[in-house]
Design a protein around this nucleic acid. Sequence first.
DNA 1: TCCCAGGGGCATC
DNA 2: GATGCCCATGGG
Length: 297
Amino acid sequence: MKHQVFTIPIPKLFSFAECLWFLDRNLDDCMHEVKDGYVRKLLDIKGKPVLIRISEIQKVLQVEVLYGTVANTEAIISYIKEWFDLERDIRPFYALLKKDKDLSVLAEHYKRLHMVGIPNFFEALCWSIIGQQINLQFAYRVKRRLVEQYGQCVTYENKKYYLFPEPEIISTLRVDELRSFQLTQKKAEYILTIAKRLTEGALSKQQIHNLPTEDEMIASLVNIRGIGPWTANYTLMKSLRIMNCVPYGDAGIHHAVQKLKGIDKNNQAAIKALFDAFEGWKTYLVYYLWRSLREPE
DNA sequence: TCCCAGGGGCATC
DNA sequence: GATGCCCATGGG
């Protein structure tokens, strides 16, 4: 059977190779597979699993539907645009980077890198809670176990591809069932509560997105147990692509500003001043600082 | 052994 | 509102 294939134009300042590098990062993320210049990922398109393969050919993204069929490709295209923050013109951000002699190297090293997001709101929340205060490799293992146990799965060429578990499924679990994935008691409770609120409709991505200001979005999220300022900012940046999110206190940011600008992690005023110079692009500065921590060197 | 990791809640003052 | 403690596991 012949696969559906279509293309998506890409903006001038966009690097698919940088997206792939970010997705791979030898961190063993179970939500996609990166190989030989392409990425495969299972999507939920109108309630049905659809496996896609994305590669770059002659300055367009080529999308191949490997499993499942779609009546029209709009839903897939809009997912990819969101995933890779594809339509954002990042030239103003580069102009700001170049103004700072210590940070201009970021523009040179990670040329045309766009933010790779987590469009699935529940996944973004769970991931940011799982990742709190533990090393990332361990966090990825916990996530993988959870996904492989409760996420919808499609097998293609003898490989398994997963959707992130639905909140409807997670909300029916008991705390001790979640704890068996090596979540702490508290984290298990947090994730369970969030799954229930999403299932009941008391919380949704759209509802948060509809709030008029970023401060109100933060306040609304922080109101939920388990979500503090760090998690709220992380989720807003990765899932809703809000552009002035800074998870202050983040260990990675501390390391990066120390390395690049010699700012001590306790010098909160200097850190705030640094970000304030990137009004409208604070999220991208966070993202590029994190990226700089994983420089192969 | 110790400290820390892409934190947050809670008690205490 | 600031501070200290707890959670829990694994890596360096």
